[in-house]
Design a protein around this nucleic acid. Structure first.
Lengths: 164, 164
DNA sequence: ACAAATCTTGACAAATCTGTATAGATTATG
DNA sequence: CATAATCTATACAGATTTGTCAAGATTTGT
């Protein structure tokens, strides 16, 4: 299970715009330079983000990209879903009918339940995280995340660093 | 963010073995038929699982594969880490020193913190899930997962089905 | 009208992931 | 020993993802 390149770089481009105060826009070359991605790749990513409704574009000499909404109203989970799809797609195992019906294939469906459980906990985090939240530095971000997870105090912080 | 094919099919092969009571083994053709995967692909996956220490193999006419340990001692998170790697690799952003040091690059590191947070909640689920747990049917599995997530009762169950 | 800077689009090449093919090594059984 | 069934290992082709290229369209300012 990995984040795709498109998810990582797309989100970085969006963060780049979020860092511009008062909705100031950026052109592709500026984003490219700031993030160290080629201009053509930035163009491709921004096109996806535009069609997903997260940014607006303007052509011409003073054109560029701006966020469609303030950073605190752009949910990271929705951005990642656009760039990389969802972990658990409803079509994963279609042998069942109804919302809580039990599937005929117990093997597939125990996987299905597991996939859904993972999707659920991931959404718990990503639904509550906005671009604005990602503008903090790492230390603040770590404490904030700790709060998200209903952890409190120093000892639990260490859990964030514990390997599997 | 997706589970890879290798993660899904590898875990299915392992589940196939777990379903054999009393550590009875299975040969590649049997697993292939049970899961609908080609024998050659099963062979490739089982090789990975063997080198990861999750199964033992025996060659010859009465050979085949068996789990190295009982199903309740095989942690799904460890299996998936072998088959598909980790979401958050420690090398993700190496510009920092020490465990709680703040990275110089605030952008990279807010992503780093986010990735780590997602990894953390995923591990919360996958560390507590064993092959034995996955042998339940979907309904039992859904309730069990609900307990894992500190949810309780019918209303919260619905959360598992809520889209992003 | 023209030029310069910008975004837009589809096609393309390179890298990675998926799944298959093939040849070989090991072991039980007669 | 011979055979048949098994696992082992590497190499290979197809599909997908990643990232680039090139030609075009739009807008500003002169």
């Amino acid at each position: 299970m990995k984040f795709s390149s498109q998810e990582e770089y797309g989100l970085r481009c969006l963060l780049c715009l979020a860092r511009e105060r008062e909705g100031g826009g950026l052109a592709i070359p500026a984003i490219s330079q700031a993030e160290g991605i080629s201009t053509t790749y930035v163009a491709k990513l921004m096109r996806i983000l535009r069609r997903g409704g997260f940014v607006k574009s303007a052509r011409g000499k003073i054109g560029g990209y701006t966020l469609s909404r303030p950073p605190d109203q752009i949910v990271v989970g929705e951005v990642l879903a656009l760039l990389g799809g969802r972990l658990f797609e409803p079509e994963f195992c279609d042998d069942h009918a109804g919302d809580l019906e039990v599937c005929t294939n117990s093997t597939d469906c125990s996987l299905r339940s597991l996939w859904r459980a993972v999707q659920f906990v991931v959404d718990q985090v990503l639904r509550k995280t906005t671009l604005q939240d990602l503008l903090r530095n790492e230390q603040k971000m770590t404490f904030w995340v700790s709060g998200l997870l209903n952890l409190s105090g120093e000892p639990n912080l260490k859990q964030l660093f514990k390997p599997l």
